[in-house]
């Protein structure tokens, strides 16, 4: 694992890296490096399979993070290639030429996060949200509750509680996910 990353370092600029698990390592690169890096990995490393592609909205930093999860199907280990792109000009190079299945991920990310992958087929074609006319729902500045009130009226008499407040009331400020409670 380490050797691969070292190998990568001799060729590409790796901004940061992090060993998540024994068999999972994360590296961060600049957006422009992603496609050459992935291409190189597919050709010259055991990480030949694109297992997953996802996005995270770092609204506070004005950035969107894209994560490509590559897998070495023989060695049963994975490598996450992360990159951050600007939130306002959310555009990223497509990798569908390397892995055809990327088309679907890119279509979905495009729909949910509003990240554009020019050249990728089916960009802008509805995937889950048919007839969606609001902002991409996975952006954190999208207000779900407001959207629901506007579109899906609640049955009269149903009480809604703010989850955060409710959880705080019942489990205390730290929420219920902490084991030491």
């Amino acid at each position: 694992m380490k050797t691969i990353v070292d190998d990568i370092r001799t060729r590409f600029i790796v901004e940061w890296e992090h060993q998540q698990r024994e068999d999972l390592r994360q590296i961060g690169v600049r957006p422009g490096t992603v496609v050459p890096l992935l291409g190189w990995l597919k050709l010259h490393s055991p990480f030949v399979q694109l297992t997953h592609m996802s996005a995270v909205d770092w609204i506070e930093e004005g950035e969107l993070q894209l994560t490509y999860l590559l897998t070495d199907p023989v060695g049963m280990r994975s490598l996450m290639v992360c990159t951050r792109i600007d939130r306002e000009e959310a555009t990223m190079e497509s990798v569908h030429a390397l892995w055809p299945q990327a088309v679907t991920y890119e279509q979905e990310i495009n729909e949910m996060f509003g990240i554009c992958f020019p050249g990728s087929p089916r960009q802008g074609v509805p995937f889950i949200l048919e007839g969606w006319d609001d902002m991409p729902p996975m952006r954190r500045d999208f207000d779900t509750v407001e959207h629901v009130h506007a579109h899906h009226p609640s049955r009269p008499g149903r009480e809604h509680t703010d989850p955060r407040a409710y959880i705080g009331r019942v489990f205390g400020e730290r929420g219920f996910l902490h084991d030491d409670d």
Partner: peptide, 16 residues
Amino acid sequence: MESKKLPVLPVSAPPE
């Protein structure tokens, strides 16, 4: 909050 529209994207031609 100002709702943001999806960026207008070029829809690629369907495969031949």
